[in-house]
Measured scan of single mutants.
Amino acid sequence: MFKRLMMVALLVIAPLSAATAADQTNPYKLMDEAAQKTFDRLKNEQPQIRANPDYLRTIVDQELLPYVQVKYAGALVLGQYYKSATPAQREAYFAAFREYLKQAYGQALAMYHGQTYQIAPEQPLGDKTIVPIRVTIIDPNGRPPVRLDFQWRKNSQTGNWQAYDMIAEGVSMITTKQNEWGTLLRTKGIDGLTAQLKSISQQKITLEEKK
């Protein structure tokens, strides 16, 4: 169930391209415009997507990853294993993690069937560096609404905000991946996880038929 919630949630996290980005210092504006741009692209490019579902990787690479804190999220997933990894191991892992996100997020976007969304009203940021933004996803086919909290983090150097995690039903996506990959990290280390991520990233994206 959580895996499905995570995939549905990713439908609204794909941010804007650099040329049309919203105010990078306001995570609420980023979330709002990102959702609108993403849904528009999914709707307008269905012919290309249906002809070649792996085209979704391109959308992810162009529109999402430049505005997601990939390395920060990847380091959180590694936890204690990050500090013990060599620079070469980290570089290989982050490259594999990025390719994994292209496949995983692309597969999530393949679930698009006309969903709509509501974003919580903007709250004062103050001096906060981590801000959760509640998004409610509404399914046109009558499924119950899904309420999610996207975690946005302020870059201490640039002042810009980027998304790095999502919490559904009190469970963090980062925590879920830590639990899912924990045994592999304990037995085969970061190299074993890197190899698995490379394998997963090679899987073809498949479209979910409308139910």
Rank of each mutant, 00 (worst) to 15 (best):
V70M: 11
Q178W: 15
P140K: 14
Y82E: 03
R50Q: 05
T38I: 12
Q118N: 12
F150R: 09
F2P: 04
N160A: 07
A195G: 09
L109V: 11
Y72D: 03
Y117S: 13
N141G: 09
A21E: 08
D54S: 01
A14K: 00
S201R: 06
G79N: 15
G79F: 04
F97E: 08
S156H: 11
A85E: 10
D127R: 10
S199G: 05
T183I: 03
P140H: 11
A75M: 05
I133T: 13
P145C: 14
W152Q: 08
R90K: 00
I133Y: 01
P66E: 14
K211L: 14
I174S: 02
R186W: 08
G182D: 05
L11M: 11
P124R: 09
E45V: 03
Y67A: 04
I200T: 08
R153Y: 06
L78S: 02
T136P: 08
L109W: 11
S199H: 05
Q80W: 12
K211N: 06
K43E: 08
T20F: 06
T58S: 05
K211M: 14
K177M: 10
Q178K: 12
A110Q: 00
G159M: 06
R153C: 07
D165P: 05
A35G: 06
F94C: 09
I130R: 13
S84R: 02
L76D: 14
D149P: 06
R41G: 05
T38R: 04
R4Q: 00
V70G: 10
T136M: 15
A34M: 10
I167R: 02
G74H: 13
T38K: 08
V171T: 10
G192F: 12
K211C: 15
I49F: 07
A18K: 14
Y55T: 11
A85M: 02
P121Y: 02
D40E: 14
A85H: 06
L193T: 05
Y93V: 14
Q118K: 12
R57T: 11
H113N: 03
G159C: 12
I190L: 06
P145I: 02
E208N: 03
T183H: 14
L148Q: 02
F97V: 02
Q123D: 09
V131T: 08
Q80R: 11
F150H: 02
Q24D: 06
E99F: 07
R186K: 13
G142E: 14
G192N: 03
Q203Y: 11
L185M: 03
M31T: 09
D165M: 10
A73H: 03
N52I: 01
G106F: 05
A18C: 01
Q80H: 04
K198D: 12
D165N: 13
A51S: 02
Y164P: 04
A88Y: 03
Y105E: 14
P66M: 13
Y105L: 11
V68M: 02
F39N: 11
K29E: 03
Q36N: 10
K154Y: 00
P144W: 13
L109I: 15
L10K: 09
Q115C: 11
K71H: 12
T136S: 05
R134W: 12
I174A: 13
E208M: 15
K43A: 03
N155L: 03
R57Q: 13
R147I: 02
W161Y: 11
F94L: 07
M7G: 04
K3L: 02
T86C: 05
K102Y: 01
L10N: 00
K204E: 08
T20A: 04
V135H: 12
Q69T: 08
K204L: 15
Y81W: 10
A168M: 03
Q202D: 04
I205M: 01
T20P: 12
I138H: 06
L185T: 08
L42T: 14
Q46A: 12
Q69S: 06
V131R: 09
Y82Q: 15
E63P: 07
Q69W: 02
W181Q: 08
W152V: 12
Q157R: 08
L56C: 11
R98A: 03
D191P: 06
Q69N: 02
Q80K: 15
L125A: 10
Y28P: 06
E180D: 04
R57H: 03
E169T: 05
Y67K: 15
T20H: 15
K102A: 15
E208L: 09
K128P: 07
E209A: 12
T25K: 10
L184E: 06
P121W: 06
D127E: 10
V77S: 06
I137N: 01
N160L: 09
R50E: 05
L148N: 07
I133A: 06
P140Y: 01
F97K: 15
V146A: 10
T187G: 09
P87L: 09
A195C: 10
Y81K: 02
T176M: 07
Y72G: 08
R90Q: 08
V68Y: 09
E208P: 05
A96S: 06
G74F: 11
I13A: 00
I205E: 08
S172M: 15
M6V: 10
L184N: 06
R134M: 00
I130L: 10
Q118F: 08
A18I: 00
Y82G: 10
E180G: 11
L78T: 08
L16H: 05
T176N: 14
L42Y: 14
P15C: 14
Y28W: 08
Q162T: 13
A35V: 09
G170E: 03
L197F: 03
T116S: 03
Y164A: 08
E33F: 02
I190H: 13
A88S: 06
Q80M: 08
D149W: 09
Q118P: 02
L125G: 07
G106S: 02
E180T: 08
E122I: 06
E209T: 05
G192W: 07
A168F: 00
Q89R: 13
A22G: 11
T58W: 07
I133P: 07
T194W: 11
D165S: 14
A51L: 10
G79C: 03
N155R: 09
Q196K: 15
G126E: 13
V171F: 12
G182W: 11
T206I: 01
R98G: 01
A22C: 02
Y81Q: 00
L101A: 01
R134E: 14
M166Q: 09
M166D: 11
A195Y: 06
K83E: 09
I119Q: 15
L56I: 14
F150V: 03
K102L: 01
I13E: 15
P66T: 06
A110M: 02
Q103A: 02
T206R: 10
M7H: 09
E209G: 10
I59Y: 00
N155A: 01
A14P: 07
A168D: 14
K154R: 10
T194M: 02
G114F: 15
A168G: 14
M173F: 15
T25L: 10
A95Q: 05
T86G: 12
G126W: 07
G170S: 08
M1R: 04
Q48E: 12
L125H: 09
L64P: 03
Q162E: 14
V171A: 11
I167L: 12
R98W: 09
D61T: 11
E209Q: 13
K177W: 13
Q89W: 00
A9W: 15
